[in-house]
Computed example of a mutant assay.
Amino acid sequence: MDWRELLNSIITNSTERDRIAAEIGVHPVTLTRWASGESSPRPHNLRQLLRALPKGPRSQLLTLLEKVSPDVVDFEIDTTSHEIPYKFIIEVLEARASIPDLLRFWSITRLVLQQALRQLDPERVGMAITVVRCMPARYGKIRSLRETVGLGTAPWGGDLEEKALLLGAESLAGHVTVSCRLEHIGDLRTNKTFLPAYQVEHEVSAVACPIMYACRVAGCLLISSTQPDYFAPEARLALVRGYANLLALAFNPEDFYDPDVFALHIMPPSHIQQAHFTGFRQRVLKLMQDSVRQERRLASNEAEQLVWQDIEEVLLNVPHQEYK
């Protein structure tokens, strides 16, 4: 028996075939094609297949795969990654209890994103993960969201904060924040979901989950992958929800808003936005220096927020005909 014959015998049971396909994030027909030899799984698909199998069949399949692909020996099959580690949850709670107010948001968000990136992209196939938070309300309404802390594996850079944008009604993050409901898109190249989405370079699939507290929302956790249907498995979506819930600990209660205060605008595309970020740090520094002279000293995060609000006001007034 070769590995394809073993796979065929496993998926003869239609219930088991559908379960494995859902766990991997592929169509059940794809498993049938792998078993028949019509197509071959990519290395990361093989890892996912091995993780999805019970211990006995997994060992058998691994032995058969080693005969045709020596690289399989180096596969790290982590079958315990469907839950956030308990020790890490305690670490976040301890950080929440001990970190000063001014450092809490940045410290906890980076802590959570680092762990989420390790767990959600263990094979480093390519992922970007970003915390998107609401811009302060003006005239009683929230008009845009802002990408803040972000981390990524190749082909994205390690720290994504310098590439942050303002997002609005045209984005998946905007839709999820307003609806207070997790959504994912399996393939942004075709996007048959009718969900709004702004596709960035290298991005193929995406998921966004609202960050909530007491039925109010502060923004969302936005994750992109280079792989199609990467967030299809329910176990992976459960992890995304879990990390979004942990991120709520980074925010203050007043950072959460009732859904009825949102009136998101359509924000300009990135190439227009980037032109307005030139000299951002210099503008922040100048605000801080001016505040010292005026004896109303601003912290760096307060000065940054004021500069972001100025940029938001300018971008909201860019004529739509210039978006092309």
Rank of each mutant, 00 (worst) to 15 (best):
1 M>N: 10
9 S>T: 12
12 T>V: 13
15 T>M: 05
24 I>Q: 00
24 I>H: 01
26 V>M: 00
30 T>Q: 08
43 P>L: 06
45 N>T: 14
45 N>F: 11
47 R>M: 07
50 L>T: 01
52 A>V: 03
56 G>M: 08
62 L>A: 06
71 D>R: 13
80 T>Q: 15
84 I>S: 05
86 Y>R: 15
88 F>D: 04
92 V>H: 05
96 R>M: 09
100 P>G: 11
103 L>W: 15
110 R>K: 13
115 Q>P: 04
118 R>F: 11
119 Q>F: 07
126 G>F: 04
132 V>W: 02
149 V>E: 05
161 E>D: 11
170 E>V: 12
174 G>V: 04
190 T>G: 06
191 N>R: 05
196 P>T: 04
196 P>F: 04
200 V>F: 07
209 C>N: 08
209 C>A: 15
217 V>E: 00
221 L>D: 01
221 L>K: 05
229 D>L: 13
231 F>T: 03
231 F>K: 01
232 A>M: 14
232 A>W: 11
243 Y>P: 03
245 N>D: 14
253 P>S: 15
254 E>P: 12
258 D>K: 14
264 L>G: 01
269 P>D: 07
269 P>G: 06
269 P>M: 06
273 Q>K: 07
282 Q>T: 13
284 V>F: 13
290 D>K: 15
290 D>R: 15
292 V>F: 11
294 Q>W: 08
299 A>T: 09
306 L>S: 04
307 V>M: 04
308 W>H: 02
308 W>T: 00
312 E>P: 01
315 L>C: 04
318 V>S: 02
